[in-house]
Computed example of a mutant assay.
Amino acid sequence: MRKTFVCILFGIAFSFFNCSNEGKKEDEKQASSKMPVFALLDSASFDFGTIQEGAVVEHDFKFKNEGEYPLILSNISSSCGCTTPEWPKEPIGPNETSSIKVRFDSKNKVGPQVKTITVYANTEPANTELRLKGIVNAAPKPATGK
């Protein structure tokens, strides 16, 4: 009789615990669905092809905030000083589009190149990676006259 009573109490406690967790999960799901969403309109990678050393390549990564709250890009960093990002400093409202301009200077960069640009925002996950890639051919050497 005592074992049965303990089992019933345990069952009731477990069902209350399970119900309270379901409510928390539902609250978390609702909160995350309302967060800003950084959605790229094109690819996260841009192949600039083959260029001559010294050329500067620019590309706009277009994106949209598909969340319910304003999207704030807090910082953007690049894997190399030769790659410079420009981004909007003001919040991007729900369903608004904008872009991140990335400029790659190929001076003193010869051969295959892959540059990573990390976007930090108030999203889940908190960062997104973009890539520029291509090949830089060496600039021709000036002819020496004898």
Results as ranks from 00 to 15, higher is better:
R2L: 15
K3T: 13
F5E: 11
V6L: 15
V6F: 13
C7S: 13
I8Q: 06
G11D: 02
I12W: 03
A13M: 12
S15H: 07
N18G: 08
S20G: 04
N21W: 10
N21V: 14
G23H: 12
G23Y: 11
D27C: 05
A31F: 09
S32T: 15
M35L: 14
P36K: 00
F38M: 00
L40A: 03
L40P: 01
D42L: 07
S43T: 06
S43Q: 00
S45M: 08
F46K: 06
F48K: 00
Q52D: 11
V56E: 04
E58G: 06
H59R: 09
D60G: 01
F61P: 00
K62T: 12
F63S: 01
K64L: 04
Y69A: 14
L71Q: 03
I72R: 09
I72F: 12
I72P: 03
L73M: 07
S78R: 05
G81K: 08
T83I: 09
E86N: 11
W87Q: 05
P88C: 02
P88L: 02
K89E: 14
E90L: 13
I92V: 14
I92F: 05
N95V: 13
S99A: 14
I100N: 04
I100V: 06
K101A: 03
F104P: 00
F104C: 00
F104E: 00
D105N: 15
S106F: 03
P112G: 06
Q113M: 07
K115A: 01
K115S: 02
T116Q: 10
Y120C: 01
Y120E: 10
A121Q: 02
E124M: 13
P125K: 04
A126Y: 12
N127Q: 11
E129P: 12
L130V: 04
K133F: 07
G134V: 10
V136T: 07
N137W: 08
A138P: 09
